[in-house]
């Protein structure tokens, strides 16, 4: 021991205080998030409860809240499911092109482009759907009604392009970049050794993809689709702008009489609502919250289960 050092305990108090203040701030931020989410649920419930007893004029002329919300929920699910039926195969194809088919030089800019398209605001998609897609697709609906009218979906009559099918197509276009982005990531994560093992056995590219990429990516793709579904369920503006809604339950996709969706219905009616009508709309929002929560939860659960297995 050459030097006697004074015990370096002087800075103790200072650094300890800094630590506890900082840790407190961080924990507080975390707790605030819990509080915020609890707040979302609680405020929606408080403001939604008065709607349960609403009827007649207060419930937009419906007997009770269930009769009011059900057609909206039906429309929400219908539009979202059709959108996913359209978007999923396309998204998987595009993701496959980016991850395995296109040369690197091309794949990268394409991926870039898809990411940018995911950022386009929904209101712009809505504008496009209303002003461009709806008029352009009307002849197709007319053709469908003429030739496939015996199917209940295409009963027609096709008088407007602003149908639930158009809304679903717009939703599909919106969900496409999101699903593609996740699928691409999952496809790219396939272990190289698996792919090379398949190729070394003399597999063609498609056989390699079917043998290694798809089994590995299955849960990732499913959860991507669930996330896309959650997004499509909650999407407001695109539907509100595209759809010419009359709020009934039908599976006729191309007529002028279309079911509405919860989110679009709130957006279109909230401005003029007053009294219990506000509560009715908030109640429908609560239903939407629960449904999209369930879908998202399912998606993450599948993703988590897949990760454990991998």
């Amino acid at each position: 021991m050459s030097t006697t050092t004074t015990a370096p305990s002087a800075p103790t108090a200072v650094s300890r205080r800094g630590d506890s203040v900082f840790a407190g701030l961080a924990t507080g931020a975390g707790l605030l998030i819990m509080l915020a989410l609890a707040g979302v649920a609680i405020f929606l419930i408080i403001e939604g409860i008065p709607a349960i007893s609403a009827s007649g004029e207060q419930a937009y002329g419906k007997d009770n809240i269930v009769v009011y919300v059900w057609p909206l929920l039906f429309g929400t699910l219908l539009a979202a499911v059709i959108a996913l039926l359209i978007a999923t195969p396309l998204a998987v194809g595009v993701a496959l092109v980016i991850s395995h088919y296109a040369p690197r030089r091309v794949a990268r800019p394409i991926g870039y482009l898809i990411d940018l398209l995911a950022a386009v605001p929904s209101v712009v998609y809505g504008l496009w759907g209303r002003a461009v897609l709806a008029p352009a697709i009307l002849p197709v609906y007319a053709w469908l009604a003429d030739h496939l009218g015996w199917l209940p979906f295409f009963d027609g009559p096709a008088r407007t392009g602003r149908t639930i099918l158009t809304a679903a197509i717009v939703l599909a276009v919106m969900a496409l970049p999101i699903i593609t982005a996740i699928c691409r990531e999952v496809f790219l994560q396939t272990p190289r050794i698996h792919e090379e093992a398949a190729l070394a056995l003399g597999a063609t590219r498609w056989e390699m993809i079917r043998m290694t990429v798809f089994p590995y990516a299955r849960s990732g793709v499913i959860s991507a689709v669930m996330l896309g579904l959650g997004r499509a369920l909650g999407e407001t503006m695109a539907v509100a702008m595209v759809l010419s809604a009359s709020g009934l339950v039908t599976i006729n996709l191309i007529s002028a009489e279309n079911p509405s969706t919860i989110a679009a219905n709130i957006a279109l009616n909230f401005g003029n609502a007053s009294g219990t009508k506000v509560n009715v709309l908030i109640f429908s929002g609560l239903v939407l919250f629960v449904v999209s929560f369930a879908v998202n939860f399912l998606g993450r659960w599948i993703a988590a289960r897949g990760q454990v297995k991998a």
């Binding site: 979302v40 929606l44 369920l233 909650g234 929002g285 999209s292 929560f293 998202n296």
Partner: peptide
């Protein structure tokens, strides 16, 4: 946070 990621935007407005 996972749950919040999935909140529909209109529900955030209602909140």
């Amino acid at each position: 946070v996972d749950v919040m990621t999935g909140i529909p935007s209109i529900v955030a407005g209602l909140f």
